[in-house]
Design a protein around this nucleic acid. Structure first.
Lengths: 336, 336
DNA sequence: ATTGAGGTTGGAACAGTTTCACTAACTGTT
DNA sequence: AACAGTTAGTGAAACTGTTCCAACCTCAAT
């Protein structure tokens, strides 16, 4: 369709100049480059190798790059699970780093021969995802959900399992149940808070805002929280964490200052991987299947490529994966 | 150099047929494809996009795919650290899955436009690495070392820090110090055993082969080991683990059966990531900087591309990264 | 005014891929 | 047995993207 030569004819330039502009070659005038980029975006230009469409899919970090987490690793594993069969290759990149000055994101993807992207993001970078999606580039976001149309995403259903978790604590006769959540909200975490509130009020427990603690989503956050609790006169008997690492930190610090878990304090965390088995006692946690999430992301992306995807155009692909509450050793009946 | 058309002329075929053969298109006769592949390998054919050399680097799993580990995640992070500046992109693949029937590995890499590969491997797949290296494809192995010439690799220096670890235990007056190591050996683990033996004999302690325990490198392995130790009449007072997960499992199981760590048992593990901080007490461990290892792997690879690399040809690039012993709460003086 | 340097641009050559037409062999039908 | 239809395999040609080289244009210095 829209080839380099077609663009060239349209813009009354040579193919050479268009190619240079698309590759951010400095030997092209700024004004010309801008015109070429605009035309390429408008005409939905997609580079090919010879006559073959490229078969790369990007796992793209929008925002902080944090490959380090087991969650990302599992996600990637799921992504690659089905890719080989379709002849796709997986490319890792950091969108902020990869994009050249005065280049749109979708253009950067095209320059690298990428057909579609799985965007791994955090709330801080939500805008970035919206921007990329609005440029019309096929992408699926993991780790955030969006209200507006036109943005595809896959997510875990945090709401119902959060409800389950809190109900489990209430079944154990806990009443002062605190929710511990990251300082910055994303939609996933908002769901977790909603689940907490729902379960509490349904079972006739008052939700006191002072029972919702905001901490950084790191191990240190959990440690600090325990130190705060230790000073309280009327502290909660159970904690529900919306993130894995603070839950671990809290368990360790609590034991360090002599509390017995679960006798003196019950803890429920989240787990993307196998962390719940690495602490003593093993941790009751809500588990999400990150690998399956990766598979779903890939399938959503291929759906966007297909004819059906073209029809959907503005209505996006959205999938939700159920999560499970796994009961282990960090929760027990309230001890009064 | 060796282009498709050059190959075609050489083999008295059309460029079309050569292209098909190289892409494993089924519409080409088996005998012809074989001839093309042989010629491509002999003439060191490298595909290009237009006239530009491809800029992909592969993070290739040779053997079991195990992206899941934090070690791999950190490795990848290190790899990508410097890549963007050089204009390279990182491609993830599983060599066994990616390779087509009757296709050499180097050919598969070339088909995908890959300039060089970082091979992440295990001992079980050591042969695979040797094969790829012998095909002459630029690659750097991580996680294994090789005696023979012509194979580049980056590794952590396990020997000296293993010595440090055991010496630390001896300083704490331990005498019955056991070494716990994976059932299958790789050169890295052999180094760790060597370090153990060296330290023991230098300090005048006898190395009893019954003090070297072989277990699967999983959490469960450590659990099983503790159960075995519990039944022994004259059990070791300290354990030196060559792998992260069994050390964690052992700590948990030991505490479960009522042993106090470090009073009843001192434990030293390995840590690629942050696991040592997630257990209680925090774990004394040998830490390797997987991220730096990734950076080194990338730099070694680019060295192989450069002119200097051409000269080296048969003598390979080899780098070793020091590791550190970090003392935390899981080791203490022997208690008699 | 002339010359030279540097920035831009286009033409041409060349890289790989696929479409289309063609051949040869094989298969099934009359 | 003869014929038609199908299929595997091949090559020419058309098309895609990139870079080398020559040409052009502008501006400053002589």
């Amino acid at each position: 369709m829209a080839s380099i030569r077609y663009l060239a004819k349209e813009l009354k330039l040579s193919p050479a100049t268009v190619s240079r502009a698309l590759n951010n070659n400095p030997l092209v005038a700024a004004e010309v480059r801008q015109r070429v980029l605009n035309a390429a975006n408008k005409l939905q230009y997609v580079p090919t190798i010879g006559r073959r469409e490229t078969m790369n899919i990007a796992f793209a970090y929008a925002g902080d790059r944090s490959i380090g987490s087991p969650f990302d690793a599992a996600l990637m594993e799921g992504l690659t699970d089905r890719m080989e069969a379709g002849g796709f290759d997986l490319l890792i990149l950091d969108v902020k780093r990869a994009v050249h000055p005065r280049e749109t994101f979708s253009h950067m993807f095209r320059r690298k021969g990428i057909r579609g992207a799985v965007l791994r993001t955090t709330t801080a970078a939500k805008d970035l995802c919206i921007q990329i999606a609005e440029e019309g580039f096929p992408c699926v976001v993991v780790g955030e959900s969006f209200d507006r149309d036109g943005i595809s995403f896959v997510r875990s259903d945090s709401l119902s399992s959060s409800r389950d978790a809190v109900n489990h604590l209430i079944d154990l006769k806990h009443e002062k149940i605190a929710m511990v959540v990251n300082q910055v909200d994303d939609s996933d975490h908002l769901d977790r808070i909603a689940g907490y509130r729902e379960a509490m009020s349904t079972r006739g427990l008052k939700v006191d805002d002072r029972l919702i603690f905001r901490i950084p989503a790191k191990r240190e956050g959990g440690i600090q929280l325990i130190r705060r609790l230790a000073a309280m006169s009327d502290r909660p008997t159970a904690l529900f964490f919306a993130d894995p690492l603070p839950a671990i930190g809290a368990m360790m610090e609590a034991q360090k200052i002599g509390w017995n878990i679960p006798r003196d304090l019950s803890i429920i965390g989240f787990d993307d991987a196998e962390l719940r088995f690495m602490v003593n006692p093993t941790m009751t946690a809500i588990c999400q299947d990150a690998r399956e999430l990766g598979r779903m992301a890939f399938e959503s992306l291929t759906l966007l490529f297909s004819q059906k995807g073209r029809e959907l155009q503005n209505s996006a692909v959205r999938r939700t994966l159920p999560t499970q509450l796994e009961c282990h050793g960090s929760t027990g009946p309230v001890c009064s």
